[in-house]
Amino acid sequence: MAPLLELKNYSTHYVSARGTRVVKAVDTVSLVLNSGETLGIVGESGSGKTTLALSILRLLPMAARKTDGEILFEGEDLLKKSTEEMRQIRGKRIAMILQDPMASLNPLFTIGDQVSEPLRVHEGTPRRTAWQKATALLKAVRITAPETRVREYPHQMSGGMRQRIVGAMGIACEPRLLIADEPTTSLDLTIQAQYLALLRDLQREHGLALIFITHNLGIVAKMCDRVAVMYAGRLVEFGPVRKIFDQPRHPYTRALLQSIPRFADSRNRLTAIGGQPPDLSAPPLGCAFHPRCPDAIDRCRGEAPPETGTTNGHTVRCWVAGS
């Protein structure tokens, strides 16, 4: 069976107005996602994970003037679609949930208007039916008293409810793929647990594929089937979640996993990663991680490592681990 989503050597480069400066926000990324699966894209700020998500939806800002490679969704290359065709896909077949729910809701419209909007736009559902569906959707995301809530406005909701409403908008047209960009960072722990449980139930009921964009390895451990680790625009490691947690191959993945505090061994010193994340407008030559890498060899300083190990679905970009 063909995968639901496949990226083949995909790149997005931001080019400055005069064309003098190029930032390789996403650089030759390849990955696959099957229907009903969950993919976690992890990385620090500036590692290119949000640009990657926006690339899939073709919502990149004007400065992203150079894109390359292929993004195959249900076998069709999204980069070859016209603007009108993309509009048919966004919100209907691929939906996205953003980090700040207040920024994705219009304060001047009722919840019912906003949740029913995708249905009316994409499926031409009449207003009355769409509102009935919106009420059902609010119920599906476990909003209590949905009949009254549909007539209320975003400011009358709490943070957790707003995030669930954005989730309801996301699944309104039963998309095949839902991309969630840091969906729980603004939520409290117990509310985050509620929300993640909800996403999981929705996924099971609708056979959704999910992409989680996060810096939190805990969310990956809890939710994801596959993990893509990004560093400075490149996918440094990609594979099944257990493989990545048990046998991380890239030194960055390994260091990241060792640097997070755990409940079990609380009095031990953490293994910190030295140095700073690189400046993407002037990344280090060769492998971008080499200045912080404990295993760096001479070759890492001059030449960027290729992706290796594609056969077993666990790939890594590293001269030391990949050979």
Partner: peptide
């Protein structure tokens, strides 16, 4: 950033 937190802790 996640990779910096351990340094500060």
């Amino acid at each position: 950033d996640v990779s910096i937190r351990a340094q500060i802790l």
